[in-house]
């Protein structure tokens, strides 16, 4: 049930090179959050009063595709909609408009997720494991419920997965509080992979971990990805982590993708002024005494998603902004080197 008329491209109407083996396709995905009206407001509204309703558009018209075996990094600052987009890709949240296809099938039916083909690793391993369930039961629950493994075989499967994520199989009978953050994240990864997904969405999987533990989890991720041929969407605010694991990267700003392309190219030759500013903002490891750190921060603040600026959302902070940027929103258009950039001046 794939969409044969559209080649796997990203951007509004933009066409990337054809991708026959794309696992995940998102087309014009939008998420709007309408504030929940109180009973009083609803009555007032029904009686004809003007009730203020400020919807927040967290994700606006995002199209992207992920190929078999590829890792797409999704980068942006807080409030850029990367987590919301991740939830829509993973079938946790239904888009307000547009559609998501995983292996040709929509991951959600109505309000409920309907596929096991895509699984999620969450940010905070202290919150993502049921504190009152033994980790063996946590890992086995999904596969048993979906008949991926017989109940009798579940303990063996759990032991196998614990070993593969670098934990002692004897830990299956322990509770989450008996583990450190890094160990919990290993359990969370095992839980996701035990569902035998074709694709994994990792939402800031190392953001809440210490540096040395973060390195261990990244290494584990790289190993598993190679061994299992995993396809991934890797969401993070940390540019260096994303660079390390991603083949392609999409940069988000205020609900839209402003630039995407091969990771190596984005980091060496960013084209969108926001991408450039973001890369310049990251503190570099300064190793030479005379190499005085110079910050070239992006001026100004992130605008409120309640009232995004007209035209290009980045124009109030952009050094290159001109009249057209204030009036007209730039479309994500392909450039000669395969990059997709949404900027009038890049």
């Amino acid at each position: 049930m794939s969409a044969p008329d559209r080649q796997g491209g990203e951007g509004s109407g933009a066409v990337d090179r054809p991708i026959p083996d794309r696992i995940l396709v998102a087309e014009g995905v939008t998420k709007r959050f309408d504030p929940r009206l109180s009973l009083g407001d609803r009555i007032a509204g029904a009686l004809g009063a003007a009730v203020e309703r400020r919807a927040v558009q967290a994700v606006s018209d995002v199209s992207l595709a992920v190929r078999q075996g590829e890792t797409l990094g999704l980068v942006g600052e807080s409030g850029c909609g990367k987590s919301t987009l991740g939830k829509m890709l993973a079938g946790i949240m239904a888009p307000s408009a547009g559609r998501v296809l995983v292996d040709g099938v929509a991951p959600m039916q109505g309000r409920h997720k309907a596929t096991t083909r895509i699984q999620t690793v969450f940010q905070d391993p202290f919150a993502s494991l049921n504190p009152r369930m033994r980790i063996g039961a946590t890992i086995a629950e999904g596969p048993v419920a979906h008949g991926l493994v017989a109940r009798a075989q579940a303990p063996a499967m759990v032991a196998d997965w614990l070993a593969r994520v670098g934990l002692d199989p004897a830990f299956a009978s322990r509770f989450p509080h008996q583990f450190s953050g890094g160990q919990r994240q290993r359990v969370a990864i095992a839980r996701a992979l035990a569902m035998q997904p074709v694709m994994l969405v990792c939402d800031e999987p190392v953001a809440s971990l210490d540096v040395s533990i973060q390195a261990q989890i990244l290494n584990l991720f790289l190993d598993l990805r190679r061994d299992l041929g995993l396809t991934c969407v890797f969401i993070s605010h940390d540019l260096s982590v994303v660079r390390h694991v991603s083949d392609r990267v999409a940069i988000m700003y205020l609900g839209r993708i402003v630039e995407s392309g091969a990771a190596a190219r984005i980091y060496t030759a960013p084209r969108h002024p926001y991408t450039q500013g973001l890369l310049d903002s990251v503190p570099k490891l300064r190793l030479e005494a005379d190499d005085l750190a110079t910050f070239k921060p992006i001026a100004g603040e992130l605008p409120s998603p309640l009232s995004p600026p007209p035209g290009c959302a980045f124009h109030p902070r952009c050094p290159k902004a001109t009249e057209i940027c204030r009036a007209e929103r730039p479309l994500l258009t392909p450039r000669e080197d395969g990059a997709l950039v949404a900027c009038h001046h890049a």
Partner: peptide, 16 residues
Amino acid sequence: DSLPATARPGEKLNQI
């Protein structure tokens, strides 16, 4: 060595 920025992208980090 644990910092991804000090390693080459995609290579295993020299973890503790």
